[in-house]
């Protein structure tokens, strides 16, 4: 009897804890969104997202943040595409060709997890050093390369987590039909995990577009829209930073408006990730 009471208490105790934690997270999220909307929405205008900064923009004069929007999109698309070309083969390789090399695979995973945890400012510093070494100047290219380094561990490990869940029976089935390991990788495992792979790519894109520290030294900043990858570019996070540190309230509010733009882009990415996940998930309804 007593035992039962303790059990019931435990049960309700953990229920309450879970409820409170959930509430806290949801509240925080709403608070963040509310703050940027409250402060930023009045300053958000068509001009803001369709024009580059005019002279005196950072002192409250006319112009917008189109330079930063375009710069951020260029950078993140570029980095995501390069990272994808590298990450997909690696993730497939460690899950299919290296199935028998458990220790090696665990070591690779461990290193990637370490790299995932390295603060982005360190990537920034590293990118900066590489840039200097090759005599590059702050540019889209240098930023893209730095961001690529930053998101590769994220992308490989996210793809890897999806590939890991595929039962070995599917590999056995594919091999017994006479596929090579590479055919198994690209014709079977890739297809089976496509929804998860897309999610991994978009997750990395979201991480890339939101990161400020890694592009701080490498991409530079400019009020113009870059016309080649050897030119510097503005980014949304840095644009927010510059506006927020201004003493002029009007400019500060524009920083929040820029934050809305950035959040909106990331939201769009999440939604399309969901959409694409469902669209490509048709082969995995049962299993």
């Amino acid at each position: 009897m007593r035992h039962l009471k303790i059990k019931q208490f435990e049960e309700s105790f953990f229920r309450v804890i879970m409820f409170l934690s959930t509430l806290l997270i949801v509240l925080t999220l709403f608070l963040i969104i509310f703050t940027i909307l409250y402060k930023g929405l009045p300053s958000l205008s068509w001009e803001m997202i369709s024009q580059v900064p005019k002279g005196g923009f950072y002192f409250g004069k006319e112009g917008g943040i189109l330079n930063a929007i375009i710069g951020s999109l260029y950078l993140s698309f570029g980095a995501t595409i390069i990272a994808m070309i590298i990450s997909l083969p690696v993730a497939l390789f460690i899950n299919i060709h290296l199935v028998k090399r458990k220790k090696l695979v665990n070591a690779i995973r461990f290193i990637l997890d370490l790299l995932w945890g390295v603060p982005s400012i360190v990537y920034g510093a590293f990118g900066f050093a590489v840039m200097i070494y090759f005599g590059l100047r702050t540019s889209l290219l240098a930023g893209m390369i730095t961001l690529t380094f930053l998101i590769i561990p994220i992308m490989i490990r996210s793809m890897d987590e999806v590939l890991k869940t595929i039962p070995i029976g599917l590999m056995e089935a594919s091999l017994s039909l006479g596929s090579t390991r590479s055919e198994t990788a690209y014709k079977i495992f890739f297809k089976q995990s496509l929804p998860g792979i897309i999610t991994a790519i978009l997750l990395s894109f979201g991480r890339a577009i939101g990161d400020a520290a890694s592009v701080l030294f490498t991409t530079g900043y400019t009020d113009n829209i870059p016309t080649s990858i050897s030119q510097p570019a503005a980014t949304l996070p840095l644009s927010i930073f510059f506006q927020l540190t201004s003493p002029i309230p009007e400019v500060q509010n524009r920083a929040y408006a820029s934050a809305i733009v950035l959040t909106f882009i990331i939201l769009l990415i999440s939604i399309s990730s969901r959409f694409l996940f469902n669209k490509f998930n048709k082969h995995n309804i049962k299993s």
């Binding site: 039962p167 029976g169 599917l170 056995e172 089935a173 594919s174 079977i188 297809k191 082969h283």
Partner: peptide
Amino acid sequence: SQQPYPLP
């Protein structure tokens, strides 16, 4: 195999 694994 004991369980069927249809290809995706």
